[in-house]
Design a protein around this nucleic acid. Structure first.
Length: 293
DNA sequence: CGATTATGATTAA
DNA sequence: TAATCCTAATCGC
């Protein structure tokens, strides 16, 4: 079906429920490969997206890119379709000609070899390049983009009085992290979520950026989130059961020290952490629970 | 069959 | 902080 570097596990068409940045980049790469360069038919567009999306019918899709959780499709004529999946949105792709639509499909893009169905998206709108610029201007650097500037995140974090657990979900500080990665990268860094961003050490902040970039790249390649270090797993990441893929997110006890996982709320979302591996007041010589990559 | 839940984000109060 | 938008899988009755 489609080739490396992607595993087959999520390639069958379903996108994982509730996406973070790695999922959107995956969509962008796949859509570029399967749809870009072709004139597409937009079939059965319904609901509030209909008016604008229908104008794309018969036009050529030139390119697809992602920035954080935002997807941008560049269409012939210079217009940009902006899609944000939000909490429930999903893309489903299948071979052309496509089977009947399942569920509440809002937009169908039919290419010569593949067809993509969009449902549940928060945003699906045809914009100008200037509109796209305005959206990107509100976003922090995306570690999955080659043009990402880590300094923009690190400088902001070094000045921010917000808890690091809040800052990581702030898409204006850093684009692409969601609730799972937030919990997991804080665990990997041994950082308590309520610690104030500017009170972290420089090494902790830069280590977080590196870990986030590393984890997002893994997620992009694997098509799913498996944060546990490879040496702890007894099989390839693609075959690790969901219950063993993570260190703290929705876990009962810490994967490393068996301490009961505690939950807090930051940025209006539940955040799980290990009170022992992620001390609120790290002692001198404090090291992360597992070695960095 | 209804309630619940979910890896998001904006707007109003 | 709360209400709101959007969908689908799952669970209990």
């Amino acid at each position: 079906m489609f080739s490396s570097p992607y595993n087959a596990s999520t390639s069958a068409g379903q996108t994982p429920a509730v996406p973070e940045g790695h999922t959107i980049h995956r969509h962008a790469l796949q859509q570029r490969r399967e749809l870009a360069g072709h004139r597409l038919a937009t079939d059965v567009v319904q609901g509030r997206f209909a008016a604008s999306a229908m104008t794309l019918d018969g036009r050529r899709l030139d390119d697809v890119e992602a920035w954080g959780k935002h997807l941008f499709q560049w269409w012939e004529g210079g217009e940009v379709l902006h899609v944000h999946l939000g909490l429930y949105g999903r893309w489903r792709h299948q071979q052309s000609p496509p089977p009947p639509m399942r569920g509440e499909v809002r937009l169908r893009l039919i290419g010569p070899s593949h067809t993509w169905d969009l449902s549940g998206a928060t945003a699906c709108e045809v914009l100008s390049p200037d509109d796209r610029e305005r959206i990107i201007a509100r976003l922090g650097p995306d570690p999955l983009r080659s043009d990402a500037d880590p300094g923009r995140f690190l400088d902001r974090a070094a000045r921010s009085r917000a808890p690091i657990g809040t800052l990581l979900l702030d898409q204006a500080a850093l684009a692409g992290i969601g609730n799972v990665y937030r919990a997991e990268v804080l665990f990997l860094g041994g950082i308590h979520p309520h610690r104030v961003a500017r009170d972290l050490t420089d090494a902790e902040r830069s280590g977080l950026w590196i870990e986030i970039a590393h984890q997002l790249r893994l997620g992009l390649r694997q098509g799913r989130i498996v944060t546990r270090r490879r040496h702890e797993l007894d099989r390839p990441a693609s075959r690790v059961p969901r219950s063993e893929a993570l260190y703290v997110y929705h876990c009962d006890i810490c994967r490393v020290c068996a301490t009961p996982i505690r939950s807090t709320t930051l940025a209006a979302r539940r955040l799980d952490f290990c009170p022992r591996c992620q001390p609120r007041r790290p002692r001198r010589g404090h090291t992360p629970p597992v070695p960095p990559p």
